[in-house]
Amino acid sequence: MTPLLEISDLRVEVEGREILRGLDLVIPAGETHAIMGPNGSGKSTLAYAIAGREGYEITGGSLRFRGEDIADWEPEQRARAGIFLAFQYPVEIPGVNNTYFLKAAVNETRKHRGEPELDAMDFLALMRRWVKELDFDPELIRRPVNAGFSGGEKKRNEILQMSVLEPTFAVLDETDSGLDIDALRIVADGVNRMRSPERGFLVITHYQRLLNHLVPDRVHVLRRGRIVESGGGEVALRLEAEGYGRATAPVGA
C-alpha cells in the first residue's frame, strides 16, 4: 500500500545553505511518528518543506504525499489535499477575524473535495462543537487570528484549526513547547482524538514528555539534516536520559 508520506534523500536549502542533507522518512497511513533532535538539526525546515513554504528550496530527492510528488505544489494546494502544519510560532494577524478565516479555509478544502460549502450557520455549529470539545475560550474565536493570544492559546488555536479542517496528514512543529501540563494534555488529546487508520501525524518535539500523552508508533532522531536513528518509544526515553550526544553517526554510515 502507498504510504501517506514518503520522503527519500530529501535535500533542502534555505538562503543558499543546505539544511536537510538526504533525509529519508516513510509514514504509512494510521501511524504517528515523532521526530526529535537538537536545535539546528533541521526539524522546522522539514516541517516547512512539507507544508511548502517559499524559500525552502528542494534541491534533491523527493517528497511524496499519497504517492504524488508534491515538491512543486503551492502551500494552499497541499493544504487542500489534506496536509496541515501546526506552527511552532503561530502568526498574529491583526484585523483578520479567526472565525472568518477558518470558515474560508474549510470551504476552500470542501470545494477542492467537491463538497458543498458550509454556510455561516453550519460552520458556527461546527465551531461551537470543537470549541467545547477542546475547552477553547469562545471569546478568542471572535478575535483577530492569534492577536494578543497567550502562547498556550495560540497552540490551542492550532489544534482547533486542525480539528475543524480534518487533515489527512498533520505535522506538529514543537506544538508542545512553552505549554504547561494541562495545555499539553489538550494538545495531545486533540491529536489522539483524530488518530484513525486513514490519517498520519508527524510530531516534532524537543521533549519526551509530550510522547507520554501522544504515544508514537516510531521515533526518529534528526541530526545535521538526516535521520540518524529510528526506533520505538524507547529511543525517546533514552534521549531524555542521555541527551543527543550518542546519536551522532548516521545509522549504517
Binding site: 502551500p75 494552499e76 494577524i93 487570528v145
Partner: peptide, 26 residues
C-alpha cells in the same frame, strides 16, 4: 502571515486580499 493563511488552504491572492483588508480593518 501570507504563508500562514496559505498553509490553511487559502489561495495566494485571497490571502493577500485578506491581509490588506485586515490591515485597514483596524
Amino acid at each position: 502571515a501570507l504563508f500562514y493563511l496559505r498553509s490553511r488552504g487559502l489561495g495566494a491572492l485571497d490571502s493577500r486580499d485578506l491581509l490588506v483588508e485586515g490591515f485597514a480593518g483596524e
